[in-house]
Write a protein that binds this DNA or RNA. Structure first.
Length: 258
DNA sequence: AAATTAATCAACCGCCCTGAT
DNA sequence: TATCAGGGCGGTTGATTAATT
């Protein structure tokens, strides 16, 4: 049995919200608070999907939202956070008070991405484009096909790939890009500890993170490829980056907890 | 002034995660 | 342990506005 839809689509409005709908939603949330988005539309007298109400509230109607242009500081912070977190817009938004993940995502795609490209910086790897071209091979092939697959495809051979792609096939690309986007950065040699971590209940992990415990990790500089001990490396100190303890542990789950 | 193109951003879609049962 | 509902997230779409031809 499949999952039931989040709402009765046949009787819901779609598209832009009207002033009246906004007023109803705001009035309802002021009176009853957030929560139970599924039942909210009916209770508030709205012909909208619960998800739609949530999105409208979070991205537009919430009173603590900061509207208007992004400042240069916010720009820088977004770039830094993106280099760390990748497209984890909600985590990035958590570090920018008054900004929503949707807003940041749009801003990234329309402004920052272009700005970085114009400076010759790859917006994905955050490295100079020349470097990125030299070090990273991007393949749109999910994985090399198996022999069986190859023989299955033999009846309809694909057209020969362009020269660049042929080169990629000769030399398989590395599976991992330059940037480690895992939520937790730690040395790969702590297998047992990791196993213990995996079986810890989420609530325990959360408490430990809030208390500042964690496995020995890399500093922000090293996580971006700096030599350990080089300028910018803070591995040996209990310094902070963006309000996070980075000397002991750089764990992005902490971003959510702040 | 009209047509076309580019830029912006609100909203939707579908998947995933988590907690309850 | 399995299943389900609800919430959250990231990617994408499409309407609107601005700029250009």
């Amino acid at each position: 049995m499949g999952r039931s839809p989040c709402c009765e689509k046949a009787h819901t409005n779609k598209g832009a919200w009207t002033k009246e709908e906004d007023d109803r939603l705001v009035a309802y949330i002021r009176a009853h608070g957030e929560g139970c988005w599924r039942s909210l539309p009916k209770a508030a007298g709205l012909l909208r999907c619960g998800k739609s109400c949530r999105l409208r509230w979070i991205n537009y109607l919430r009173p603590d939202l900061k509207r208007g242009n992004f400042t240069a500081d916010e720009d820088d912070l977004i770039v830094k956070l993106h280099s760390l977190l990748g497209n984890k817009w909600s985590l990035i938004a958590a570090r920018l008070p008054g900004r929503t993940d949707n807003e940041i995502k749009n801003y990234w795609n329309t402004h920052i991405k272009r700005k970085l490209l114009s400076r010759g910086i790859d917006p994905v790897t955050h490295r100079p484009i020349a470097d990125a071209a030299r070090n990273v091979t991007i393949s749109f092939q999910p994985d090399a096909p198996s022999q069986q697959q190859l023989s299955d495809d033999a009846e309809a051979p694909p057209p020969p790939p362009p020269p660049q792609q042929q080169q990629q096939q000769l030399k398989p690309p590395p599976r991992c890009p330059d940037l480690n986007l895992d939520l937790c950065i730690s040395p790969p040699c702590h297998k047992e500890e990791e196993d213990q971590e995996l079986i810890k209940p989420a609530a325990v992990k959360r408490e430990m993170l809030q208390a500042g415990h964690g496995t020995l990790g890399l500093c922000f500089g090293c996580s971006l490829g700096l030599q350990k001990g080089a300028a910018g490396c803070t591995c040996s100190s209990n310094s902070h980056f963006l309000g996070l303890r980075v000397g002991m542990l750089l764990d992005f789950r902490g971003l959510e907890m702040k």
